[in-house]
């Protein structure tokens, strides 16, 4: 048991995850500690702050969607259309289904 734990903690990825846990916790206390001290914030700053997740998540979607292949592009497009109506879990499953089907067809 002790040996197992030692080998667990000797993986660098475990410490990277601990660091990311700290980073995530900082975002969760950050607003409480810093932002709530201001009574008002300028509208452009607020909309910039609100846009942070949208802006960053876009960079994780668009480049791989455009550079991975036809099946991958179609799967993302189908998921995008589906997300206008379906909840996220269904969107992901549908996107994967489209991807697998198109790959089977040799795209």
């Amino acid at each position: 048991m002790g040996e197992m734990l030692t080998s667990f903690w000797s993986q660098p990825v475990v410490w990277v995850l601990a660091l990311l846990g700290v980073v995530t916790y900082l975002t969760r206390i950050g607003g409480y500690l810093v932002l709530s001290r201001f009574r008002r914030i300028p509208a452009p700053v607020k909309s910039g702050l609100e846009a942070v997740p949208m802006a960053v998540i876009t960079t994780l979607v668009v480049p791989p969607a455009l550079s991975s292949g036809v099946a991958e592009f179609c799967a993302v497009a189908a998921a995008g259309i589906a997300s206008l109506r379906l909840p996220p879990v269904a969107v992901i499953l549908l996107g994967l289904a489209v991807l697998v089907a198109l790959r089977q067809m040799g795209l």
Partner: peptide, 27 residues
Amino acid sequence: IGFDFVLPIYFLSILMGFRARRSFLPV
């Protein structure tokens, strides 16, 4: 099962949750 490409699809589903925001499209 397409899981090598699940991450962009997951992020897209999160991204689309923001689509009601006024600044969504320009951003």
